[in-house]
Write a protein that binds this DNA or RNA. Structure first.
Length: 417
RNA sequence: GUGGGCGUAGCUCAAUUGGUUAGAGCACCUGGUUGUGGCCCAGGAGGCCGUGGGUUCAAGUCCCAUCGCUCACCCCA
């Protein structure tokens, strides 16, 4: 019986890992331009943290978390809760009125895997804490749009507002009334949702349900004054920054803590997993987790597996690795021994590969070619006797004799490109 | 938890109505070139046909079970 990776867990092997490195590099650059600071967080937290933030009754907390029940600890299913815990624990709210933070890493959910959806998945999570200014909402979405654009990924941005504890209950009641009237025309899932999570009926995929819900009351028409004002200023901010978006009154959130602004970057190229990034505002969450009162927050997460799939799919090929500076081909026992020492010395300043197994020169030349070596240094008996190695430029095919000393070789590699 | 599709070489796949020794491309190794890469040519290695049972003179092929992968549903950043 052979051992293989767990269901829903994936290795990222050479050849694919370059795409991840590219993604992270571009992301870090963009985050820095928008003045976000990185925070690194643990993967395990007290189960209670997620129960309180995500909501006791959600499927995530009820059955999709990796929890060590005897210790009451859980592998994080998302990053926001952990980030806020750290924010509160270290009193970051006291250091600066507004904290702009991001974190990158693996998350875990015990779901059945499908395309773009694994049990260990990776997210880049970006949060702004301490501001409820709608310009911040717009700026955050603009940053997401800029990053995706620089990655060469085409998506659309959808926007909605979920209101706040002042206006949502009244809307919700009205929606429930609307749903109840049409209950017999809805799918069995929606019948269940009508009591468990009525907002979810809005984004059901069953055509009959969509039809029934087409004329459903829109949250956007039922916002209270402050929420309506906030929502409008978010849109004005996006317009000013030339970030295209469309309003989607059917877009809702599964997690309890969201309020007001909610948004998703959507693609049609990933099957059922349309959202490559999603987020929203959570003004009450910091307080819920024991932080200072009235600490607003907004954030979003980008699904890295999905971004990588799109990078592969949309042919945003990252150039092959730069290859190696030098391959040292030693012939015979003495040659290999000399190569071994020289390789180590030159590695202080240049990348060097070699074959330790005494393969034929032809074989070593092939290896050098495959490694993308720019130069090959050949050391055989003749070269050992003369003290001069043959340095071959693999691109121009020119060869020259170079003294077999690390300093001479380093000089030579520096002057020849 | 539910439903569909698929399991043959490292990878992508083929194998007629069940019929001799399961093939190809890519990748790998060796040689053609005493010590020089790519291209070409020749050769080589690599398979419990996912696993177990059944039907049959005969199973990669048909049946059952099981495991795995995958897509979708539920749920969801």
């Amino acid at each position: 019986m052979k051992i293989q990776a767990l269901k829903g867990f994936k290795d990222i092997v050479p050849g694919e890992v370059e795409l991840w490195q590219h993604l992270e590099k571009v992301a870090r650059e963009v985050f820095a331009r928008f003045h976000f600071a990185e925070i690194r967080l643990p993967i395990l937290e007290e189960t209670e943290l997620f129960a309180r933030s995500i909501g006791e009754a959600t499927d995530i907390v009820e059955k999709e978390m990796y929890t060590f029940t005897d210790k009451k600890i859980t592998m994080r299913p998302e990053a926001t809760a952990s980030l806020l815990r750290a924010y509160i624990e270290h009193g970051l709210y006291a250091q600066k009125p507004v904290q702009r933070l991001f974190t990158i890493g693996p998350m875990f959910r015990h779901e059945r895997p499908q395309k773009g959806r694994l049990r260990q998945f990776h997210q880049m999570d970006i949060e702004v804490l301490g501001s409820e200014n709608p310009l911040v909402d717009a700026e955050l979405m603009a940053m997401g749009a800029m990053l995706l654009k620089e990655l060469g990924i085409t998506v659309s941005l959808e926007l909605n507002s979920l209101g706040c504890p002042d206006c949502r209950p009244a809307y919700r009641a009205q929606l429930v009334a609307y749903i109840t009237e049409r209950l017999q025309h809805l799918c069995s899932d929606c019948k269940r949702r009508s009591t468990t999570n009525p907002l979810r009926v809005l984004d059901c995929k069953v055509p009959a349900c969509r039809e029934q819900m087409a004329e459903a009351p829109s949250i956007q028409d039922h916002l209270c004054g402050p929420c309506r004002d906030h929502f409008q200023r978010v849109q004005a901010g996006l317009a000013q920054l030339d970030v295209p978006f469309s309003l989607n009154k059917f877009m809702v959130r599964g997690l309890d803590y969201y309020c007001r602004t909610t948004f998703e970057f959507i693609t049609s190229d990933l099957g059922a997993q349309a959202a490559v990034a999603a987020g929203g505002r959570y003004d009450g969450l910091v307080e819920t987790l024991g932080g200072p009162k009235n600490t607003p927050g907004i954030g979003f997460a980008m699904g890295m597996e999905r971004l990588v799939l799109l990078l592969q799919q949309q042919q945003q090929a990252v150039s092959e690795g730069p290859g190696i500076d030098l391959f040292i081909a030693g012939i015979g026992e003495q040659g290999v021994e000399k190569a071994f020492g020289l390789a180590h010395a030159i590695r202080a300043v240049r990348s060097v590969a070699m074959d330790h197994d005494g393969k034929s020169l032809k074989s070593q030349m092939k290896q050098a070619d495959k490694a993308g070596a720019r130069f090959v240094l050949i050391i055989g008996d003749t070269e050992l006797t003369s003290g001069l190695g043959i340095l071959r430029n693999m691109r121009t095919e020119e060869q020259q004799n170079v003294e077999l000393s690390s300093s001479a070789l380093i000089d030579c590699l520096k002057t020849n490109k």
